[in-house]
Design a protein around this nucleic acid. Sequence first.
DNA 1: CCATGTGAAGGTATTCACAGCC
DNA 2: GGCTGTGAATACCTTCACATGG
Lengths: 207, 207
Amino acid sequence: MRYHRIPDETVRRLPIYLRGLMLSATQGCEHISSKSLADFVGVNSWQIRKDFSYFGDFGTPGVGYNIERLAKEIKKILRLDVIRRAALVGVGYLGSALLAYPGFRTYGLDIVAAFDIDPAKIGSTVSGVKVEKITRLGTLQERGINLGIVAVPQGAAQFTVDKLVGVGVRGILNFAPCKVDAPRRVKVITLDIAMELARLPYYMPAG
Amino acid sequence: MRYHRIPDETVRRLPIYLRGLMLSATQGCEHISSKSLADFVGVNSWQIRKDFSYFGDFGTPGVGYNIERLAKEIKKILRLDVIRRAALVGVGYLGSALLAYPGFRTYGLDIVAAFDIDPAKIGSTVSGVKVEKITRLGTLQERGINLGIVAVPQGAAQFTVDKLVGVGVRGILNFAPCKVDAPRRVKVITLDIAMELARLPYYMPAG
DNA sequence: CCATGTGAAGGTATTCACAGCC
DNA sequence: GGCTGTGAATACCTTCACATGG
């Protein structure tokens, strides 16, 4: 089944696999079986094989998958093969935490610009990134930045998204706990942290 | 179809509905139609009606849903009808951001304790919560805390989860970018922020 | 007339089981 | 023997269409 559209759920898991592959690459092995990778990342081995089957034959029966080759392919599919430059809007507690977070580098993602509306913050440097006036968002395009991260209060979220869309951003990660609208050509992923915590009690049998 | 298990995907959406309902409650209306709620939260109206149908008849044909009654029911289903007390482990950038984040209160969730391993942080107060030595985790049970939030570096995540499980925590929100194991009676939700950003480029047509 | 609630249909994702290959 | 890749079976979720009720 070589040529097939990749299901969304598979795309969601690809970064997990990629992380697992990169980690096991540091341990000297050249190949990894779907079973070992399964133990590593917490996904069934048959699910892993099925997922990989959507985009080609990367495994060798009896041996496993070539770690480096597979990692490279996953990066290519996720379009992470080029370094991705992102801009952060909103340098509050959460924004500052994101600037300090080393995890983005794992995927070749880099937050290279930060914007805020608060004059007290503008001009300061947070985790090596200088905070700029929000009116300077217009410079994103010429700086090759097409990913936006929204970490502003709920009330400012739609306005911020509109601005980002206006300056050519193509993908937005929104941390504000609300629905935001954007043209279809711009992909928005909303990540509401409180919501995740909120569904935890449902799964706690009693008490 | 009155008595039916609620699908996981519906449970995932319940907090969205709850937020929408609480917000529209502040606008004076007593009832809301599935169509209006749909515009509000970004979910189809038929999906909303189907979701609500899993746990009872709350709507009145021709009128809509009673906002207060429905919100109360959703809270009950999610077990958010009692205030939930959570403990945070790891008061770094992300942990501090979580302590300052007002969004948890929306769902009746409250971070009432914080722990860290760094002597420089212990004893200090962050957003009104005193940072305690990690060895004091044993006091959670008597303080009625059964939710844990893990915001420690990857290398300390499994250790932290083990500790939390040991002191009777029943649900864990893990921000460390790795799989963590826990007994089946403890529900773990892992939220890897970088992973969400990592799948964004896939959906960006070109460039 | 308007909006809910729900069977039925359609689509998507997961799991299984095993043929095929190293 | 070990492990991949994949059709088939199953489970799950979404969408539709409309009967039912206020």
